[in-house]
């Protein structure tokens, strides 16, 4: 029985980790390419969930089918936020001011969400999501299974774009050295805006998956921003593989500590791991020291 419990905990941890990875990958991208800690990341995740809710209630679109629409909407929003607000802070070269600007953006967006949808708990769940599968004693329900599949597909797609396409190459070049990238004919401003857009888009997609699995409120954004930060610090900045690794570790820490220590402890363990990593190895396990790392 303890073997099955261990296996179940492991599977739950991996599934949760997949979602953490997806929700953090955009944060990691911005951190790597622009060197900005985007404190509005969590609110982008929530915006995805709320957009999915609006589409479901207005036209009955299934949340999973709404993923491309949500991605598109948040891509545009993220790009706009970068062009209008964040670019000024980046140009002045002050990382602190970008921290404050993105925090201000998150406050405004959170207030708008409350004004439109109200402060109550919402959820995206549909009935088919509760069908469960049993694989060798381990139980997985539809929501978690589809969440994991969607996470892995999105991460794979992002890896493909980053490592095989022209835009991806330009992004990686800008991450390494924006000045030299500009000399090589890359439109750095455009790449910055694209990066923010892609990041916000992925955050929105992860928001839909989060909404399928858990109920959400407008006040969860700090939670998702911090999770993304922890994931990036655990895994390493600026790559989908780092985000995947960090997310899986975070998911593992979270489920194992709540299963074997107590359901109230995961956050204590998560932040403990964060502090430890910051002190021991602030560039993450994969140690990608882009400009975000001091």
């Amino acid at each position: 029985m303890t073997g099955t419990l261990f296996l179940q905990t492991l599977v739950d941890g991996l599934i949760l980790g997949g979602i953490f990875s997806l929700s953090a990958v955009g944060f990691s991208l911005i951190f790597g390419v622009l060197g900005v800690v985007n404190l509005s990341h969590g609110i982008f995740v929530l915006l995805g969930a709320y957009l999915g809710l609006a589409l479901k209630e207005a036209w009955g679109i299934d949340p999973l089918m709404a993923i491309p629409l949500v991605f598109g909407a948040l891509f545009v929003l993220g790009g706009l936020v970068q062009i209008t607000l964040v670019s000024g802070a980046v140009r002045r070269g002050s990382l602190m001011s970008s921290l404050l600007i993105t925090f201000g953006v998150s406050l405004m967006l959170r207030d708008l969400i409350i004004l439109v949808f109200g402060p109550d708990v919402q959820s995206l769940s549909s009935s088919w999501l509760f069908d469960t599968f049993r694989i060798g004693g381990v139980i997985v329900d539809g929501a978690r299974a589809s969440g994991l599949i969607a996470s892995l597909l999105s991460l794979g797609l992002l890896s493909y774009v980053l490592y095989r396409s022209k835009v991806g190459r330009a992004m990686r070049a800008t991450a390494q050295q924006d000045f030299a990238a500009g000399l090589c004919g890359i439109d750095v401003k455009k790449i910055y805006a694209m990066t923010f857009g892609v990041s916000a888009g992925f955050a929105g997609v992860s928001g839909i998956i989060v909404g399928l699995i858990n109920p959400f409120t407008p006040f969860d954004d700090t939670h998702w921003t911090l999770n993304a930060f922890v994931t990036v610090v655990l895994g390493g900045v600026g790559s989908p593989v780092g985000a995947l690794l960090g997310g899986l570790m975070l998911g593992g820490i979270s489920t194992f500590s709540s299963q074997y220590v107590g359901s109230l402890y995961p956050n204590v363990f998560i932040f403990g791991a964060l502090l430890l990593m910051l002190i021991v190895r602030p560039n993450g396990l994969l140690g990608n020291a882009y400009k975000g790392s001091v």
Binding site: A89, S97, L100, I101, I114
Partner: peptide
């Protein structure tokens, strides 16, 4: 309802216009 919106707007405006 508007407290956070205004606080956020003031923060963004201060950082951008009068750091």
């Amino acid at each position: 309802d508007l407290h956070m919106l205004v606080t956020g707007a003031v923060l963004v405006a201060m950082v951008t216009l009068a750091p």
